[in-house]
Write a protein that binds this DNA or RNA. Structure first.
Lengths: 343, 343
DNA sequence: TTGTATGCGTTATCAG
DNA sequence: CTGATAACGCATACAA
């Protein structure tokens, strides 16, 4: 231990200034009932002595950490990176810190993450659920203790847990309708586990659009996988086996849409003339692929901001009775060349 | 306060079992000198009573938080999302948690982030520096206290702070050499602030490759900007004004390379025949753009893992004397169609 | 193997 | 406006 210098405490400052530790504590917290003179003196000597407040002690005393926990399926996706950036900004501006973890799409890890957050005594929890989560018993310890649990994107219905999501149903309805208006009559839908509301609702929106346009829904036009890039390739092969070929494809994310589209292109299928394409998310690659991909702009950054703001609200109005309320964010369709047929 | 149930402490467990709190504490920590019988009994009643250990008290006592701080320029980039995912995995497996913040490329925010980390008493700090950081005085409080500060990607030379990066010089040298071998003689280099070692070294590698191939370095073939998508567009316009046109472009990131390439394509320039292209990073979009982009595979996930592992090592061997050592990760060139000329 | 006693550094309560 | 004092819950040195 070379740098074993003793950490300065409020007692050291108090001793030096011949005042009480209580006054030092108050002065440092800008308490109203401390004279300006002592405040200045205290803060000055504090920095001089290299004091840093001990959050452990403070937290222990105050019973709060000013830390918000975040549990998401995966940290490395465009969408999630944007979400996190938005959250960090808002939380930081409100003097909260963000502790993160990923469930890697499994409930087991999600449960262990939740326990870690519980022990770390986060003041609130922001959650987007794993692929296979079917109940949220692991969040009950938080709810029981009145620690706000807010779901976003991959949400779960539970009294007392606000949810933030976009109107997936409506977005899917709109984009499917758009494809139909472009002349599509046999539209494939590529989606993921219907356990997750986001995908179930996009599916429902797709179906409803077909119905409203008197197009018969066909089960064999629905492909269910994990929406990865690889899944896009496999989907393309499935599509190529269809007779007759579909004339439109609506994928529940861009990632999968893009690889699928690229394979079909290589097979000589013209986009959008033979098959019109639509995705979901508005990933950066959507404007790189040729033709550029029609999609739904899913603003991660904004969702992160909103979720964090709601959390701050909950934390500030702690005592007050606050009915669980959900927020539905606006999404917008972005029409690009992948679906635009020159009529 | 509806859910105002009292939190269970080790004292409550002790009372119930008519043993001492010390024994409970030891039992819960799996201390060797506690009988199996009491251990089982304690853990069982602990869960029964809904006990959760109080990390505030524990941290205060142990003087460590098991939290690692992360400060990066931006959270929302492909590279950084991968880095963070890698870090989270390793840290979580070692019972550490990750608290994150972004400097948004300014020193001021970086300083305030550092202070927050200091107060939060992180056990270690992982840092990738902001664009305009020229000194690291704000990390001195950590270094003074023997709290490991590890730089990755955007690093800084400082005794006692390990650095993790790839050999940018070599990677740039190789990729420039590759372009030359494809017949390029007038190669534009698009890069960013030379304050940051990563960019300076890529620049140096580019220059050296020219030199070794007897190609005269020309200042007016170097474009310096922030490597954003917009910068790519602007760069393309600059390129179009060059007489004669260059026959190769090496951009210090993919992002900028891709938009630049797209503009040039629209202007009727054939890639790679007229101008061969190379980027840096291997972003997902590199395999979406047409032609696919030749680039350097910069493995964020791996870098995150390595940085986290080094941190864990440092934390475990705390007392021991450990000379600051740096790690240079292997990078590999990925040759794709954007630079491959059919000879 | 278990118990006793103490301190970690802060903040809140109460009293002046 | 300031001071004394008592928790907050845990982990460890020491004793048994």
């Amino acid at each position: 231990m070379t740098g074993g210098e003793k950490e300065i405490t409020i007692y050291d400052i108090a001793d030096k200034l011949h005042i009480s530790a209580a006054t030092v504590s108050r002065a440092l917290k800008d308490h109203p009932r401390v004279s300006k003179k002592t405040k200045k003196l205290v803060t000055k000597t504090a920095t001089e002595m290299g004091y840093r407040s001990n959050s452990f002690a403070s937290n222990l005393r105050r019973k709060s950490s000013n830390i918000i926990g975040l549990i998401v399926p995966r940290l490395n996706s465009n969408f999630m990176a944007d979400v996190i950036a938005g959250m960090e900004k808002v939380l930081n501006n409100n003097n909260y810190n963000l502790i993160i973890s990923q469930s890697l799409e499994t409930v087991q890890k999600e449960i262990s993450n939740a326990n870690a957050m519980l022990v770390n005594r986060v003041d609130g929890l922001l959650v987007s659920l794993a692929y296979d989560t079917t109940n949220i018993d692991h969040f009950e310890p938080f709810i029981k203790r009145n620690i706000p649990v807010i779901f976003f994107d991959r949400v779960f219905d539970h009294d007392g847990c606000p949810q933030i999501y976009i109107d997936n149903y409506k977005a899917a309805y709109e984009i499917t309708t758009h494809l139909i208006k472009q002349g599509c009559k046999r539209i494939v839908h590529i989606t993921a586990s219907q356990l997750r509301k986001v995908y179930a609702e996009r599916f429902a929106g797709y179906k409803k659009a077909l119905e409203d346009n008197n197009i018969k829904f066909e089960t064999n036009l629905v492909i269910i996988n994990d929406l990865s890039s690889e899944a896009g390739i496999i989907s393309a092969r499935q599509v190529l086996k269809m007779h007759p070929l579909p004339d439109g494809i609506f994928s529940a994310n861009d990632n999968c849409a893009i690889t699928c589209m690229q394979i079909l292109k290589k097979e000589g299928i013209a986009i959008p003339e033979d098959i019109a394409f639509a995705g979901f998310n508005n990933d950066p690659s959507a404007v790189v692929v040729e033709p550029n991909l029609t999609t739904v702009n899913y603003k991660g950054y904004e969702m992160g901001e909103v979720a964090a703001k709601l959390m701050i609200d909950n934390l500030v109005n702690k005592g007050a009775f606050h009915p669980a309320h959900s927020l539905i964010l606006r999404s917008e369709m972005i029409i690009r060349e992948s679906s635009l047929r020159t009529q």
